[in-house]
Design a binder for these strands. Structure first.
Lengths: 234, 234
DNA sequence: GACTATTTGTTCGTATGTATC
DNA sequence: CGATACATACGAACAAATAGT
């Protein structure tokens, strides 16, 4: 019925997975919503239950769906740990993709820093100062440094007024914090990190876009250099 | 099978997926390696072929496996999809506000353009020229413009030598191409777009990082302006 | 190019475990 | 508790694509 007419060689289950994903993206199926039974869905897409199950399993692997035995199929409200493992794996494997990730983080945050300097409110300044204070008083205590740094960058993303970017950074932040944890043990590195955040903070408060972007780039460069130093030392 | 009374009611396919993943992570199955046939694997794990297929589909969703029709099952190198997933999810969850999306796209592509100008090979230059040619000869035919523009930016991302960024851009382009389609109907806009891509192309070929970054920003600014013009016209 | 063996893709019928009301 | 709705699991069969001869 539905299968003929085209010479596509693409497997059905990939097609169906894309269509389901598209429905979620377009918001026709909302987060947390319960989907129709698999049998109904299979009929709706014109495929067998087995194929539909494969498609759903794919989306479960992607962290978009959740199948509850005896209950139903749900659009997963939030994908929690799905992000962490691949990054850990890459770090363990010494993959060069860690470099790519850091680079992407830098590009995004350069834009965020610039936008934050342009659009920040007084409220954001207060939050940034608080995070900076945590870092400055926390030299010697890695957990405080990490917390302060995390709050700082999350606030920065928020101040940029770009929810999409804020979402991406919030998720990218986890692996990045892993990097900082990895090389932040020495107090010397901590002082460098804090100093650059102080400069970044001042740039944003003074609404100096270029300076903010520049200081952020310096921070990322610092991290990259310290990483390569560490690598050679192994 | 063994009728053991486990208190764990965990679905079989999840169990099998974990076991397979464990084998990959532990290195018993190497990246790029071809796995035994699904039927053999099913027998090995003591499950039906359908269940094993579900497990594999999950791992395909996670970006760990690749199933090739008529050929076999392969362990997919981590590089590509693994890092794309978090951003993918972020984009899905975040509000797909056009302005925010365009902004993120611009920040990322500024970095990409700069890196591409620094690292591009002759091969990339050839591909860029080809895409540009498609656009230049396609003025008046929107579908050609869209295809050329898509190829151009994908090539650019590839030339940047950052697969993570390339994947992110590919995802972002889904909604972004809609924007261009929306406002690309007029030939005047098409000419502007093509002209800026010509400038961008030349910058990359000449390995002028700053010019590349600048021209890309100009392109994004152009799109933003045209969008707001359109909005007012409604 | 054609043939063949191998392997994934797809369907259906049926049975069972589990959550919800 | 029972009834119902649903995901889970099995097995057999056939279709389609690929690789090798």
């Amino acid at each position: 019925m539905a299968g003929r007419g085209k010479k596509e060689s693409r497997p059905l289950y990939l097609d169906v997975a894309d269509r389901i994903e598209s429905l979620i993206v377009r918001g026709e199926w909302r987060l947390g919503e319960r989907l129709p039974p698999l049998a109904t869905l299979a009929a709706h897409f014109g495929v067998s239950r087995a194929v539909l199950r494969e498609s759903c399993s794919m989306l479960v692997g992607k962290g978009l769906l959740e199948l509850r035995h005896g209950d139903g199929t749900y659009v997963k409200p939030f994908a929690e740990d799905a992000f962490l493992r691949p990054v850990h794996a890459a770090v363990l494997m010494g993959s060069s993709d860690a470099r790519a990730l850091l680079e992407v983080g830098m590009w995004l945050e350069k834009g965020i820093a610039s936008a934050a300097a342009r659009r920040r409110s007084d409220e954001h300044c207060r939050a940034l100062s608080e995070a900076l204070f945590t870092m400055e008083t926390g030299v010697g205590d890695l957990s405080l440094i990490l917390k302060g740094e995390g709050d700082f960058h999350l606030t920065l993303a928020d101040a940029a007024g770009n929810p999409t970017a804020a979402n991406i950074v919030r998720i990218l932040y986890h692996p990045l914090s892993g990097v900082l944890r990895w090389l932040g043990a020495e107090e010397k590195v901590q002082r460098e990190v804090v100093a650059l955040h102080r400069a970044l903070h001042d740039s944003v408060v003074q609404m100096d876009e270029d300076a903010a972007e520049r200081h952020l780039a310096m921070y990322r460069t610092l991290l990259r250099e310290r990483i390569s130093e560490r690598r050679e030392g192994l």
